[in-house]
Design a protein around this nucleic acid. Structure first.
Lengths: 342, 342
DNA sequence: AAATTTCCATATAACGTTTCATGAATCCAC
DNA sequence: GTGGATTCATGAAACGTTATATGGAAATTT
């Protein structure tokens, strides 16, 4: 027995022509019932395996999707990738996952590789540079959906949490608890989603006449921990801390524990990004949950839309976040609940 | 400007033949310096993009790797995938990630698709059936490395934590703290790695003259929580709980909190699988850390070895786990530390 | 200087599909 | 029964590479 059987061999086995086998297998054209059966059984006899590489070359469709994320250890991205993979494979696509480690150069590199592999489209979480700087790498012909870190200027279709609103709601919630000195801890100002969260936060604090403090705490959990420990030791430390994503939250919880800050007695803690283990911490951490599933579904929908060649309107879709109140947020010490204050 | 420039167009632009362009780009054969330069610059001028689908068809190598995991939300698998992706892309490979959701049928399905896509190899975390039942789907020609859930009978090369030893060490540690009633909570008996952990656990308890109790708590966090809450309410509940993986750990922590079991006062808790947030819980949870990076590196090494066509010795590699002691494990209440008891 | 080898560019044949133009056969209506 | 559609199988031509056999020039040997 030599290599894998080809479509040609199936054709002779079934006593039909090559083209007929192709039509039977793709089912896009009608074939006489009897011939169809013959082809099917010939495939079984020979244990025929379709070669999608050859098919891709000829049809110019690989049914392959590039998914570009900063990393997979971040639970938010893991959830996104998982959901996207499920959607894709249900639609007959296979995903090629690449990680950028937040390195724009590596991102461009991987994008180039995915293009060489002729992916039918890309779902991208851009690094610092945003989609603008990625555009030369991605090109204008490539169906593309930007996820999570998007800006109104995106030339591609995009989907993300409504970061401004989510942060705004989070901040208003803290204000409603009586807090006026609130610190928002962010990784960096260089990411679009973070900038939006900062803007929403600041807007709420201006409106609520609070003191908005935005701290850059670095890209890693460790940097965040150290930075927030510093914050805790300051004399005029805030009464509430808003962690702008799951990384910062990890650092924040660690820091608050190390500095034996009583949560929520001394300081309330609110997290952006909700995860299973947040409810296991003591106190359980209140959070703003991003609608990951919804984001994935919308992203995939936009992708199929583009692949289908329907008019590209490059919509920028926003999905609302949801506040989950747990034990880490409470009324500011020393005052009654001032719900009416806002 | 029409479609993408082909190698042929580059050839005419550079004034050389098609074959020469190919040799320049692949660099596997020597080409006169001047011609090489002409080709390179022609590529730049035309903005040539290599078509790896066509190359794959002809060369019968896709430089593509299938990675098959139960899910990506499980941090252990996420870490594995991340590491594998990095190793693969550094070696010029692109990974196709598929998830099985622990569904054997879906696994076989996805494997078939990956084969149709002509992946150069597969790195597989099998579901219940183990690699034996996957073998018909994978075939004997496909380079394949089984990861995490392996058995001595595996016909493929494989890499995993030394589950027997890791569980054995964990159990001995609990015994050394004076515990004699220890429960090992596992998802199911149907997974190889779990069976090994059970065996290591039981061996240690026989040797240490303890009472080994193995509970099946189900495949989800929620099932595990309910099951372990039941355990906590039993009159003769154990003094130590060994959670056999991160899923069970999540359920266990939740259950212990709900039942207000004092950890480690009333019950010690030891986790299999270590994660960042375990050290943030109060008490911080002791754990056995699996050498994820090492596993990924070995798996990739075995894979390249097979792809390289070197003699296939189907080695079964085992990597040692590491006990991380934190606050959730302590001497059994009412007795002094009996370190010498073992 | 002829003979032999080495080097390297070329042209052409794959790789295994899909697509497309062609044509045979069947069907319906008048 | 003839003309015009319609249906459906066929064979050949792509798709864009890599691999291989060929051939000519330069380099080396005798």
């Amino acid at each position: 027995m030599r290599g894998k059987p080809t479509m040609n061999e199936v054709a002779s086995e079934a006593g039909v022509s090559l083209g007929t086998v192709s039509r039977v297998l793709n089912g896009n054209s009608t074939v006489a019932a009897e011939l169809g059966e013959r082809v099917i059984s010939a495939c079984k006899i020979l244990n025929y395996q379709h070669n999608r590489v050859a098919a891709s070359l000829r049809s110019r469709q690989t049914h392959t999707m590039g998914v570009i994320v900063p990393d997979i250890l971040n639970t938010f991205y893991a959830a996104l990738v998982e959901k996207l993979e499920n959607l894709a494979s249900a639609a007959g696509y296979t995903v090629m996952v690449v990680t950028t480690g937040e390195d724009p150069e590596r991102a461009r590199d991987r994008i180039a590789v995915l293009k060489e592999r002729q992916v039918d489209g890309m779902i991208v979480i851009p690094s610092f540079d945003g989609s603008e700087l990625l555009r030369p790498a991605i090109g204008s012909d490539m169906p593309c959906v930007i996820v999570d870190r998007i800006s109104a200027k995106d030339a591609y279709a995009s989907v993300a949490t409504d970061n401004f609103d989510a942060a705004y709601q989070g901040a208003r919630y803290l204000l409603s608890l009586g807090h006026r000195d609130i610190t928002l801890a962010v990784n960096t100002r260089r990411l679009w989603n973070t900038q939006e969260r900062i803007a929403g936060f600041e807007r709420a604090l201006v409106e609520g006449k609070g003191k908005a403090d935005v701290r850059i705490v670095g890209m890693t959990v460790e940097e965040a921990r150290i930075s927030i420990e510093g914050l805790c030791r300051e004399r005029a430390r805030p009464t509430a801390l808003f962690a702008s994503n799951n990384l910062v939250t990890l650092g924040a919880v660690s820091a608050l524990q190390n500095c034996t800050v009583d949560v929520p007695g001394d300081m309330s803690l609110l997290a952006f990004d909700d995860f299973e283990w947040l409810s296991l911490l003591r106190p359980a951490v209140s959070a703003i949950r991003q609608p990951v599933d919804q984001i994935a579904v919308e992203a995939w929908r936009l992708m199929l839309h583009q692949i289908g060649g329907r008019p590209i309107s490059t919509p920028h879709i926003r999905a609302g976040g949801q506040l989950i109140v747990r034990g880490s947020t409470a009324a500011r010490a020393g005052i009654g609940r001032r719900m009416g204050a806002l």
